[in-house]
Computed example of a mutant assay.
Amino acid sequence: MKRAAGDIPQATLSRALNLLADKRMIAAELPLSAKPFRETRYHLADPHLRFWLPFVEPYLPEIERGRGDLTLARVRRAWTSWRGMAVEPLIRESLRRMEGLPGETGAVGGYWTRTNDVEIDLVGADREPVARRITYVGSIKWLENRPFDKHDLGELFVHRSRLPGADQETPLVAVARSGCTADHIQHVGPDELVGAWE
C-alpha cells in the first residue's frame, strides 16, 4: 500500500522527537499524577522561537511589503492567550524554587487527559513522573484586570476531583497576576515568583 505524502511512520516520528529533545530544541512533558500516563506533550523549548513561528515567520512577506501593522495587530489580538501559555514553564520553575508551599513537593507539573476534558495547570507532587503523593493542585490566571475568583476556584475543585492521587484534602494554589478574591486557597503573585529566583 502506498503511503500518503504527509504520513510519517511512528518509529521515525519518535526518533525525530527524541533527537530534538536530546538537543533541547523541544521539551517533552507527561501528565503528573499518581497513575502512569503516556499522553506526552511536546513544546518548543526556546520562548523566542515559540513566538517567532506563529506570529512572525508566516507573515514575513507581509512585513517585507511594509505591512507590519497587520502583523502587529494580529500579535495584539492573540497576546493575552499566548502570554498565558508562555509563562507556564517559568511559573512552574519558580514554584519548584519557592519555599512556603505544601511540604514534600519535589516536582511541579501539569495534568491533562487525552481528550483535554480535564486540564490542570499546576500539580505539585513528591516525585515525577508518577507521584506517590500529590502535594497540591493549582491554577494559573495571568490576566491584567481579572483576579482568580470563586468561579475559577469552582473549576479547580472539579478538576482536582478527577486527578488521580488527589482528594478533597489536597491543598489548592492560585497563581494570579491580578490577585485572588477566592477564599480557602493559597495565592502566589508576581512578587513571590520573582523572589524565588533571588
Rank of each mutant, 00 (worst) to 15 (best):
K141N: 08
I134G: 03
E128D: 12
Y111W: 08
G103C: 02
S139C: 13
V123G: 09
S139M: 12
I120K: 02
Y111P: 10
E104Q: 13
R132D: 14
T115M: 09
K141Y: 01
I120N: 11
G138W: 00
Y111N: 11
G138E: 04
V118A: 09
D126P: 04
V130T: 15
V130Q: 08
G103I: 01
V130H: 09
G138F: 02
G124T: 12
T113S: 10
R114W: 07
N116R: 15
G106H: 04
T135F: 03
A125P: 03
L122T: 01
A107E: 12
W112E: 02
D117A: 08
R114Y: 07
G109Q: 13
I140E: 01
D117F: 05
V130L: 08
T135N: 00
E119C: 05
K141L: 11
V137P: 15
T105R: 06
I140F: 04
Y111M: 07
T115W: 07
Y111Q: 04
G138L: 00
T135R: 13
D121Y: 08
T115L: 06
V118T: 11
G106D: 09
A107R: 03
E128K: 15
P129N: 10
R132H: 11
A131F: 06
G138Q: 02
R127E: 11
D121P: 07
L122W: 01
A131V: 11
T105C: 15
I134D: 00
G138K: 01
N116S: 10
T115H: 13
R133C: 01
T135I: 03
I134Y: 00
G138V: 01
G138M: 04
R132A: 14
R114T: 06
N116W: 15
G110Y: 01
V137A: 04
G124R: 09
V118L: 10
I140T: 03
N116G: 07
G103R: 09
I140R: 00
D121E: 15
R127W: 12
W112H: 07
T105A: 07
E104Y: 10
E128A: 15
T105E: 09
L122C: 06
R114E: 07
Y136S: 10
T135L: 00
A107P: 10
V130D: 06
A125K: 15
T113A: 11
N116F: 14
Y136H: 15
W112Y: 14
R133G: 00
L122Q: 03
R114P: 07
N116A: 12
I140D: 03
L122A: 05
A107S: 13
R132S: 10
E104S: 14
R133F: 02
S139H: 06
V123I: 10
G109T: 02
D121W: 11
G106I: 05
E119D: 13
I134C: 04
V108E: 13
V130A: 05
Y111F: 15
T105M: 15
R132L: 06
G138D: 04
Y136D: 03
N116P: 02
V108N: 12
R127V: 10
T113C: 13
D117T: 07
V130F: 03
D117Y: 05
T135V: 06
T113G: 07
W112I: 04
R133I: 10
D126I: 14
T113V: 09
V137W: 03
T105H: 14
E128C: 09
R127Q: 12
G110P: 00
T115A: 15
G110F: 05
G138I: 01
W112M: 05
D121T: 08
R132Q: 15
E128S: 15
R114A: 11
K141F: 02
D121S: 11
D126K: 08
V130R: 12
